[in-house]
Write a protein that binds this DNA or RNA. Structure first.
Lengths: 227, 227
DNA sequence: TAGATTGTTAATCGATTAACAATC
DNA sequence: TAGATTGTTAATCGATTAACAATC
């Protein structure tokens, strides 16, 4: 990586692969903390996260030096350090477009609050759904019509697309036009967006296909236990 | 990769990264086919899939030679070839444990049938939900009690865990004990399983955190447009 | 001091990319 | 033939791993 551009914020580039694992560590650390465990070794934490200890130590070493040789990591301190580093402490506002079964499931999802996210808006087109109140963590949010999308999106940083496939691209375009640059999509279609907008797409069917194929290709497990 | 073991089924190992992209190509090809487009170039197909054309050609080259130089790929032939190769033609049976909002969303998901999956069972603990009939694609499936898990699992190859976090590991253990070796989990916790069992976990909160962080780290887009 | 465990090094492995010869 | 596009090569890049010196 050597895209020098700009006065460069020194923070030595952390590998993508590492970033994608950090939330998992965070989650395990929360479990440990809740269980009253105060210290953990890289071997233990790694096993609970489904990675090797070498990989875990390498990952953490990119963020800094948070452990004590001969002892391990302080659960609470490491958790705070990673959370700070990821920027989880400063919650991001989320708008969900499409309040069907999936939208409801997402709204009800307890993990959001803990992960530093706050649902600030729910949008749908169905007259039967518009106006209904949905419990999102502690808050009660009223479902608003599609016409209000721009207004609501203006208050959010993240847009979640949980609409049918056919409407996904249109919704995506409107979200981007309203200033959203982070989109999580559950529609089984590739969304094209302007440069600078980050899209992460989850397609259940694709996930199942990958899973099914992996098994077929490795009939005699090569270590198994995945995250 | 050189894990020689066993009489080795020659089929030259295809890279994991390639396998994970194949379902996306498949999906775009379906769109093209439905739109009546019969031929597509690697540049076009790649753009619609969110990858570079070099990567696409390299990926396809691992499966075989399905294009025509100077012309491109026949949409229908390439689709059939990839589908055959992935083994999508022979549908896999799925049991979903946990029929809350997420379970319902999964059951209603149209993409499953097209992707070569068939839902054969729904399990829940809630007396209000047990006995209810849910439309899964064409089929109507009745939600059965947790006690029936082993019976239903015996008829399935894939288990989907859509229960609350607290029950996930227990359900996972029972699925594995019942002979399931492919598990897709939506519980935000790491599941430990015996070697040979493949687990793929999707945690919405983790997905959002990765998304949010990516944006923070690349303030001036480095190409953007992701799959 | 002896035992334990981190943080880092260097070697290996796998994935991406650009370029182009082969060929329609 | 001229133009287009594949399939493959070789170079680059990034991620994983094992081993160990540093240090509690």
């Amino acid at each position: 990586m050597s895209l020098h551009i700009a006065p460069s914020r020194a923070r030595a580039q952390v590998p993508t692969a590492t970033i994608e694992r950090l939330p998992a560590y965070l989650h395990v650390l929360e479990h440990l903390r809740d269980a009253g465990i105060t210290t953990v070794s890289s071997v233990d934490l790694a096993a609970r996260s489904g990675v090797t200890s070498a990989k875990l130590r390498k990952d953490l070493s990119h963020l800094g030096s948070y452990g004590t040789r001969g002892v391990g990591y302080d659960v609470d301190f490491l958790h705070r350090s990673i959370a700070d580093w990821l920027g989880v402490r400063q919650p991001l506002d989320v708008v969900i477009v499409g309040v069907g079964n999936l939208g409801h499931a997402l709204a009800a999802y307890r993990g959001f609050a803990g992960g530093g996210f706050r649902i600030v808006g729910l949008i749908d087109v169905d007259p039967d759904v518009i106006g209904r109140t949905v419990a999102c963590g502690d808050a009660l949010i009223t479902v608003r019509p599609l016409a209000d999308l721009e207004f609501i999106a203006g208050r959010a940083q993240i847009g979640v697309i949980a609409t049918p496939d056919a409407s996904a691209q249109a919704v995506c375009d409107r979200l981007v036009a309203a200033g959203i640059s982070l989109i999580l999509s559950f529609a089984p279609r590739f969304l094209s967006v302007a440069p600078g907008v980050e899209v992460r797409a989850i397609d259940m069917s694709v996930e199942l296909q990958i899973l099914a194929f992996r098994q077929r290709q490795t009939p005699l497990s090569a270590g198994a236990v995945s995250a």
